[in-house]
Design a protein around this nucleic acid. Structure first.
Length: 207
DNA sequence: TGAATGATGCGCT
DNA sequence: GCGCATCATTCAT
């Protein structure tokens, strides 16, 4: 871990005063968690430096009865973290070039997770731009693949404990977020469920 | 401004 | 082989 510069120290010191979400936040019905994550802040103390962002869009993937959930066809090496305790990262590789970040929800044995689809960059924007060259600020995290690329998240961060100090969620204010819902994006199974949640007033727009 | 398509690798049938 | 919780590029309107 490199020495932290002055702005980085400011970020690190402030995180101590914010409310880091505990395991019980994730140990709840996935639809509630997915809705409540919108407006929370994702913090990643990466090897290259700290970054944070305000999450504006999520999707819920709920158990073995949800045909669109990776756990629908049983436990494999790829999806095994979803079957474990809540409050851990589930990061998978897709389309030959992208990673997607999820947070495991519900009690151990019930495989479910929330996909983090989009966020507004807050801290470490220069590092995000280094990871995603040429992108404007509001495009850096506008989509699950771009979010992982800009944050530098890969399989290396799969299965990390969200109650630790590397990657976690913070509540930085008690803002009341106006949330809209829709069907989930990019799936061909269980398309009838409105399990996508997004900040209706954010500047970050997908598609 | 939107539809079509190619890139690219892995997990599963 | 085929499909995939994506995205950038190309082409048509």
């Amino acid at each position: 871990m490199p020495r932290l510069s002055a702005p980085d120290c400011q970020l690190r010191s402030t995180t101590g005063t914010y409310n880091k979400l505990k395991r019980r936040f994730y140990d709840r019905p996935t639809l509630e968690v997915a809705r409540d994550i919108v407006g929370k802040y994702l913090v990643f103390d990466s090897p290259e430096g700290p970054m944070s962002a305000r999450i504006v869009e999520t999707e819920a993937y709920i158990g073995q009865d949800d045909a669109a959930c990776h756990a629908a066809r049983g436990k494999t090496r790829r999806n095994e973290v979803m079957f474990g305790k809540p409050g851990f990262t589930y990061i998978y590789f897709i389309y030959g070039m992208y990673y997607c970040l999820n947070f495991v929800t519900e009690s151990e044995g019930k495989p479910a997770a929330v996909l983090i689809r989009a966020a507004e960059p807050v801290d470490g924007i220069e590092l995000m731009q280094f990871n995603s060259p040429g992108k404007r600020r509001l495009d850096l995290l506008a989509g699950p693949g771009k979010l992982c690329r800009s944050f530098g998240l890969t399989r290396d961060q799969n299965g990390l404990d969200l109650t630790g100090d590397i990657i976690y969620l913070e509540e930085r204010s008690k803002e009341r977020v106006k949330i809209s819902t829709s069907a989930r994006i990019g799936i061909n199974q269980a398309t009838e469920h409105p399990w996508r949640f997004f900040d209706a007033e954010t500047e970050v727009r997908l598609k």
